[in-house]
């Protein structure tokens, strides 16, 4: 048993913090893209377009039914062998793509359930004033569904932030990769990974605070 090398840890903090923008950038990009894709998938699942529904069902089933790490390897190491256009894809892009596809499948189910949970009277009132389907979804249904789905979606965002650490396995030097490299020089693996863990933890805690504010904001219209 040895004591913690606190000086080493303190010195490492700014180094690892330097990679936070990359981690958050990957997660933010993945989240925005996943939200868009998930909304489209969810709306399709609600309206069930006859020539598209089976493909969406299959997509969601596959990406929920296989591990994220397997999907990332499949895209980054596997797919380029089959599709030559993908050979030039870099690790960061591949990670964002993988996170997007993976999380959009989960988020689509959350959004679909939230849409279907919007009271029937809201759909009918929107129809009765002569709104098109698109106007109804954009102005009435999706905003109300968003309030219900938001807490769960933020949880997926938190999962996604943690999920970016897997980009390390695609050769991306993000927080985890940086710590690994540092530790390989100093042999202080425990300290290095502890710093990474604490920084992830702090980020998630900050986000949880934001989550509470977001919920208060979204519930504003519904308070008695």
């Amino acid at each position: 048993m040895r004591g913690l090398d606190l000086d080493y840890m303190l010195g490492l903090v700014p180094v690892i913090l330097g990679y936070v923008p990359l981690t958050l950038g990957m997660a933010a990009a993945g989240m925005v893209l996943a939200l868009i894709l998930a909304s489209l998938l969810a709306v399709e699942r609600v309206f069930r377009l006859p020539w598209l529904d089976w493909a969406v069902v299959l997509f969601i089933s596959f990406f929920r039914g296989t591990p994220l790490l397997v999907q990332l390897f499949l895209f980054y190491y596997g797919l380029p062998q089959v599709l030559s256009v993908l050979t030039s894809i870099d690790g960061v892009t591949a990670a964002i793509m993988g996170l997007t596809l993976h999380f959009s499948a989960y988020m689509a189910e959350t959004i679909r359930a939230a849409i279907l949970g919007v009271d029937r009277s809201q759909w009918e009132a929107a129809q009765s004033i002569g709104m098109t389907q698109l106007q109804m979804m954009r102005r009435i249904i999706l905003p109300q569904a968003a309030r219900v789905a938001a807490p769960t979606l933020v949880n997926y965002f938190i999962d996604m932030i943690k999920g970016t650490s897997l980009a390390f396995t695609l050769g991306v030097t993000e927080m985890m990769g940086a710590a690994q490299k540092e530790a390989a020089g100093s042999f202080l693996y425990f300290e290095a990974f502890l710093v990474v863990a604490l920084i992830y933890w702090a980020m998630v805690e900050l986000l949880s605070q934001g989550q509470k504010r977001l919920e208060t904001y979204l519930n504003k219209a519904y308070a008695r």
Binding site: S121, Q127, G130, Q144
Partner: peptide, 21 residues
């Protein structure tokens, strides 16, 4: 749509848009 825009419906349960003032 054209027909719906010619009439206005008042619902038994009000059916106000919950996300709007």
């Amino acid at each position: 749509l054209a027909l719906r825009r010619r009439s206005a419906f008042v619902f038994q349960n009000y059916a106000l848009f919950a996300n709007k003032t």
